[in-house]
Amino acid sequence: MRRLLYFLPLVICLGIALFFYRGLDLNPRDLPSALINKPAPEFSLPALPGRDIQRADDGLARTDLTTGKPVVVNVWASWCIPCVAEHPLVDRLAKREGVTVHGINYRDRPDAAAAWLKRLGDPYAKVGKDESGRVSIDWGVYGVPETYVIDGNGVILYRHAGALSPEILERKILPLVKGAG
């Protein structure tokens, strides 16, 4: 029995090697695009507590995406550094361009998330907290930040993984939002 223990490192190593071999054929940057032009998944998230503007029905759900007006859904977290970088652009989208932006707060502590919004400004109409990350998985969130454009009927038009840039905002998101409206 004790002798078998000495084979354990070898077994683990071979197991990892097998995964690597299979992993070589996969491209980690290939994001599942199955959701593009499909309806957004069914979901309902409780509201993020502690925000400056708080309404009773502040939770975020699928019904918020089917109001007839295009909306942008931004997935973020207070521990995510690129989210800080793109924040001025999200702010601009909401305040200067007048687009409704909803937030999904991904795997975060609610107090940290609320403090983050207080510090950097809160551009979101509604923020649902997804502490377990369950809903984000349904959306196919690969990492934070991620941004989705959804038409007035709840259909996902566009998805951007990673921090927004002014180019993405101007060339992709704004035309879609304005066009779908």
């Binding site: 995964f19 599942p32 196919g140």
Partner: peptide, 19 residues
Amino acid sequence: LYPLFLDVLDAGKVSVGPP
């Protein structure tokens, strides 16, 4: 390696972040 493992098992794409 966790993201790679899940990807190989076709269990979805995840990123394991600082948390």
